[in-house]
Design a protein around this nucleic acid. Structure first.
Lengths: 115, 115
DNA sequence: TCAATATACATCGGACTTCGATGTATCGAA
DNA sequence: TTCGATACATCGAAGTCCGATGTATATTGA
């Protein structure tokens, strides 16, 4: 159905940016996590409703790393190598700034749309 | 400064989608508006803090029109032609759906980050 | 035992976004 | 008459998320 596809597209747009924010928040709270665990955390906190695709998540992780907001490190887990991420001091700073930005947007939406 | 540029980029991401949502909201509330007026409305309701660039706004308008959420019509204003937009029935429907999606995201952020 | 499922990482092309720069043109006011 | 506000639009750049695809190990239950 047309409206289904439409909403999928618009949902995607609305979520853009919020994914990065939540990743920073998870790492800020939990210390260190690997990609798969981060994805599980999205599932957990949103009841499976707000979960980036695997491809998207690794893009986000790569991007945040490139920006210096998180750090990745290869860690042995049994015979398997896992890439574990943690937030940097800059990441913590930026997280707080993003928080302020989100509050601003919430405020504007509340004023505009009501409730 | 690095963090300035960083925040600019991240702000942009966070705002993605919300612009479309607010345009629909303006048209839903005001009936008919032209592009420039929509931009002024962004300035008004956000104290100049959340305003898409001109390029971005016309892209958004074009996109919403293509999706069938708004309609554009050329109207004479003195000797000048203005393109006036209004929301379609589909647009109203989608606006409500987006509202639900935004509430969901707000709820998740509130649960995750607190307050 | 062995087959399915879950865990875990990553890349690629496609479709799409916002932005800044640029261009055109009209209007009102100093 | 010149400047700034009004008003529209397009373009390339950089970056987004997604779905598909690929690789490989661990676990579980039939």
């Amino acid at each position: 159905m047309y409206i289904e596809k439409l909403m999928k597209k618009l949902r995607k747009e609305l979520r853009s940016g919020i994914y990065s924010y939540l990743v920073l928040s998870f790492l800020n709270r939990n210390g260190t996590m690997h990609g798969y665990a981060i994805r599980k955390e999205f599932e957990r906190i949103s009841d499976g409703k707000v979960v980036p695709s695997e491809g998207a998540l690794y893009d986000i992780l790569k991007s945040l790393q490139k920006l210096g907001l998180i750090e990745g490190e290869w860690v042995e887990a049994g015979k398997r190598l896992r890439k574990c991420y943690s937030i940097t001091p800059l990441g913590k700073l930026v997280f707080e700034e993003m928080r302020a930005e989100i509050r601003l947007l919430e405020e504007i939406i509340r004023r505009e749309v009501g409730e």
